[in-house]
Design a protein around this nucleic acid. Structure first.
Ligand SMILES: [Mn+2]
Ligand SMILES: [Mn+2]
Ligand SMILES: [Zn+2]
Ligand SMILES: [Zn+2]
Lengths: 158, 158
DNA sequence: TTGATATTGATTCTGATTCTCAAAATACAC
DNA sequence: GTGTATTTTGAGAATCAGAATCAATATCAA
């Protein structure tokens, strides 16, 4: 993803935040940032296997969780809960707000935005005397030709 | 809720399902059904405290979980995950599909339905070659006059 | 009423995430 | 560069909601 990006920009962003908060830039944090920025959505466990297999076998899972949460504080990541037993971290570095379309047959996750829907949400909230701070819209279903889902996905990455 | 309802109808519904599946109608199941039908949304833990305080002190929490899941199978209940650390069971006995507006300041949960939004969801899915099976729309915010939320809620029940 | 079968409650287990803590790494002043 | 205060790390323990176990008990059809 973002093949042109040399990572320097992002590491600088991370370092800026760390310095400001009296925190330290470690090799682990840099490795996790690098790996995270290569995907769109990933779980801590998946990222853990990825990094310990390919880069640093001694990496601790707790460090993955800690750093992922750090990236969420910075605004590079966001937690999602598409199913109720694992947190998926969404790489939102170059994304604005979006919602998700999730295939139940394959692993595909499509991001979309619908100003029309958002407008209606606001309208609905106002009708009930609410001021909205955030929302969650997740559409579950399957590709019309879902037999090809898995393969399509395999080549496209997650 | 549904003050006129004598419960007989609902117990009969439960019994019908149980009999059909070679299961048994127990006092616990009946007590849980009765308590559950009095609320709109409740957690297993809350229902547990409610029942063991007021009806049967010896009730086991596992039975609450088991029975709540049973009610979901029957279609009387539905799981919700408004926050990521507790399942809320929605009493949907007399409800059609609906989405939720949740106040962050008080405990208020408002149910709504928006055919316009649902239509746009279908449209969005179709645009991406998806057939929808279900979805989740949760709007978080706060009452415009949220200082009164808590009290308003206290009298209204959850 | 009986006896086969299902259910219960106490308890243990599970799995994801967080916490703890001693050892190691980092940053900053000199 | 060195020293040192401070933060971070990895291993493992702790947590917590919820599910699984299992012997004792309740239900129900015959
Ligand atoms: Mn996303
Ligand atoms: Mn509801
Ligand atoms: Zn949205
Ligand atoms: Zn809806």
């Amino acid at each position: 993803m973002h093949k042109g990006s040399s990572l320097n920009k992002e590491v600088a962003l991370l370092k800026r935040y760390l310095t400001k908060n009296h925190l330290k830039l470690t090799q682990q944090r840099e490795a996790i940032l690098e790996a995270f920025l290569k995907v769109d959505h990933i779980t801590a466990e998946e990222l853990y296997r990825e990094i310990s297999k390919k880069k640093r076998p001694q990496m601790g899972l707790a460090t993955i969780y800690r750093t992922l949460n750090l990236l969420c504080e910075i605004g590079i990541g966001q937690q999602r809960h598409f199913d109720d037993n694992r947190t998926i971290y969404d790489n939102v570095l170059h994304k604005k707000h979006h919602d998700h379309l999730i295939c139940n047959k394959c692993e595909k996750i499509i991001e979309f935005e619908s100003p029309a829907i958002e407008r209606l949400q606001e309208e609905m909230a106002a009708r009930h005397g609410f001021t909205l701070s955030n929302h969650r819209l997740e559409l579950f279903g399957h590709c019309i030709d879902w037999k090809n889902c898995r393969d399509w996905q395999k080549s496209a990455g997650r």
